[in-house]
């Protein structure tokens, strides 16, 4: 029951925010995070065309042996990725709340440039209070 990490990927596939919470996953270099985010963006785009009957969303959950990635795609193409432990039941609601905070603290902040890395104290502190140390 833990939240390991939160990413925000912009609509071009660039990683604009990455923050780790609980220990449990090995830290990657920032370059590796960027590559992983870009790859995930591509996978998401292709999986959305995979459905045999009509249109479908892209991949929403990717599971490993000790973690799972929960992906929320917004209508504007921004993706929120939450890496949690396998049994974490809160991932969906946390992702929705992250989206709420993003809409408030990032999009309504005049000093944020769209599609650029998020450097906003308000976002940081509100994510901090939402997820805390990552242990639920």
């Amino acid at each position: 029951m833990a939240i390991f990490s939160l990413w925000v990927i912009n609509k071009a596939g660039g990683l604009v925010y990455q923050r780790s919470f609980a220990d449990g996953l090995a830290a990657l270099t920032s370059n590796e995070y960027l590559v992983l985010a870009g790859t995930l963006h591509g996978i998401h785009a292709i999986t959305s065309r995979l459905s045999p009957i009509g249109s479908s969303s892209g991949v929403q959950v990717i599971e490993g042996e000790t973690f799972k990635m929960n992906i929320l795609l917004t209508v504007t193409g921004t993706k929120f990725v939450l890496i949690t432990s396998i049994k974490d039941p809160t991932a969906d609601s946390v992702l929705q709340k992250v989206y709420d905070i993003y809409a408030d603290a990032v999009m309504k902040n005049p000093f944020h440039t769209p599609e650029m890395p998020i450097r906003s104290e308000g976002f940081d502190s509100r994510i901090g209070t939402l997820i805390g140390t990552g242990q639920t």
Binding site: A105, K108, N109, F111, R119, G122, F123
Partner: peptide
Amino acid sequence: RHISVPRDMSQLSC
């Protein structure tokens, strides 16, 4: 309420 002023403009008050 939703504005975070960047550090290099910390004197600015909207």
